[in-house]
Amino acid sequence: MPDFTLTEKPALGGFDHDFDGTSLKENVGLAIVSVAIPLGGDDAVAEALKSAYGADTPVVGDSSLSKDGATRIIRTATDQLFVLFQHETPDAAQIVAGKLGDAGYYVDQTHNWVGLTLDGPLSRAALERVCAMNLHKDRFPLNKAERTVMEHMGAIVARTGEDAFLLLSASSSAGSYLHAIETSLKYVS
């Protein structure tokens, strides 16, 4: 057994801050597993999701929740889903593969991304400074989940509540992404 132990360090050190009643918080411990849908395997994946999570398969640009509400499934592409859930150990892909079996191809994406939860009345005003998508309540309804670009950084935006959004962006540029959202919040607060 090696003499060394390794600990996970969240990309933003667990950032958590309030801006005039709108909170911005690093989503520590969010596991993300991509599920590629094999050619012609849409029905098999849909059945597996139904039986494992009690969840409907979302269309591209949308997400669904598991029956217990603990797992979010985002359709990132016609042949790709992201499965998101809170999980502390680095075996998220095995967990999902264990549930869905050979219906899909699995890749652990947990460490590829940084997750931020933005929640509060300023969230839309802050996001419109950096995001070209229309986030109007009616146009971007609950559970909508779209991939887009902000300040040259790819990002996934999911509407998780009345004024709440889950934001995902690349972990290597997590600092710059946080800076972009934080700057927006400072400007609009």
Partner: peptide, 8 residues
């Protein structure tokens, strides 16, 4: 199926 794992 392809997916980037550069940052992972």
């Amino acid at each position: 199926h392809i997916i980037s794992v550069t940052d992972g």
